[in-house]
Amino acid sequence: MSSRKPYVRKRYWNEPEMGWYERSYFFEIWRGIRITGGVFLANMWKWMTGRKGALTAYYPEEIRADYAAHNRGKHILTQRPDGRPQCVACNMCATVCPAQVIEIDAAFDPDDPEHPKYPSRFEIDYSRCVFCGLCVEACPEDAIRMVKETPDLPGFDRGRMWLKQDELLNWQPKQDVAKPYPAAGAGRTRGAP
């Protein structure tokens, strides 16, 4: 003799009370169809009268206007007052980058003793960047930022996805760095060891 108890379905505390009205399906189905059909007709009317009946944006032709101010969008490199990059090619951003997509070639500029190290090549591979913002956090010079806009991100081939230094500097030029480049002679002196 097996003493298996018949299966009893578990009752939940929030189980809905259904009277004959709900149990007969049709009225509730009719209610649902009225809602979805109403949305359909309203949106269709908008489309037919030349307005946009959807919440979606036609990315990338159309970019939603309500990006938050702190949205992590496309990168920029900030500029010193003379237009050269604020970046000192310290490689911190490239080191912290979890996707390892920042490539920096450092160069030496003997004519600018306050700022002798600068990037001769600064590139980000946007096909692999995850927009985590760690590069911005890591930068000691406020040289790299992410602005809220995201123009021209998609592309059809990987070669085109590399964001070059030129574009980084100039697509939205910013010179309001939080750590201003010291005036000549301030603090350090020319030719110090």
């Binding site: 949305v39 949106n43 009946g53 959807a54 919440l55 979606t56 036609y58």
Partner: peptide, 13 residues
């Protein structure tokens, strides 16, 4: 298209 319009989307385009 109808499914898209019903749910405030644009649909295949």
């Amino acid at each position: 298209k109808q499914a898209a319009i019903m749910s405030d989307r644009i649909g295949a385009n």
